[in-house]
Amino acid sequence: MSSVLEITGLRAAVAGKEILHGIDLRIASGEVHAVMGPNGAGKSTLSSVIMGKPGYEVLDGTVTLDGVDMLCLAPWERAQAGLFLGMQYPTEVGGVGVVDLLVEAARSAGRDPSLVAAAVRAEADRIGLDAKLLQRSLNVDLSGGEKKRNETLQLAVLRPKFAILDEIDSGLDIDALRAVAQRVEAATEEFGLGVLAITHYYRLLEELKPDVVHILARGVIVSSGGPELAEQVEVDGYAAFAGIG
């Protein structure tokens, strides 16, 4: 079944300062949308607001998944509705392992928790995450690449409808980047994952092929287009786009 994540007129503030000035995006199952932009454009704010992270205030606009309002839901309800946030800086949680977390997520969502451990092992193997690391506390003593592989592993086990990937390409080497991008790309085929990939750099998009590229600057989307838009950014920089610089 095809799903749609739709963002309309989204305005949001952090600590009383408006960061997003009206964002419109529409992503369907299986599509990969890239949001690119310079530092301070509001990229991380966009991902945080979609998932409902505390500390962000929605001033106006809507976020819906198949017509269901997400903004009135708690973060865990959004996750159960089919959203996933891959974090730029995954949080360390001492004493809680990835299997503990995903078992609890499965139980809470009414899925069979007994299948989780095997699914985690299979995905770890597939994404190239050392099985020994699965015993560790979440994100504790993991390298940048291991953290992002671990985020992607969780995505693959949870099988959400839409994944918001917040700079999943930061802090990891080229091998890890390729493994992560290929797994996400495959998920768009396997279970129709729709992707909102937020990134500063072009290099992610060499591996994870976007259908649509949006340029976010100063809290608004200043340009949208095909993959060629990302290439243009790579050549000309963000300053070349209207309203920047």
Binding site: M51, K53, P54, A74, P75, W76, A79, Q80, F84, L85, M87, P90, T91, V93, G94, G95, V96, D100, L101, L102, E104, A105, S108, A109, S137, L138, Q154, L158
Partner: peptide, 20 residues
């Protein structure tokens, strides 16, 4: 928030954190 973003309800997330 990290645990909740995976679909774990608030109270259960807190229980996991305390256990950890």
């Amino acid at each position: 928030f990290y645990l909740e973003s995976r679909g774990v309800p608030t109270r259960r997330a807190e229980q996991l954190i305390v256990g950890g």
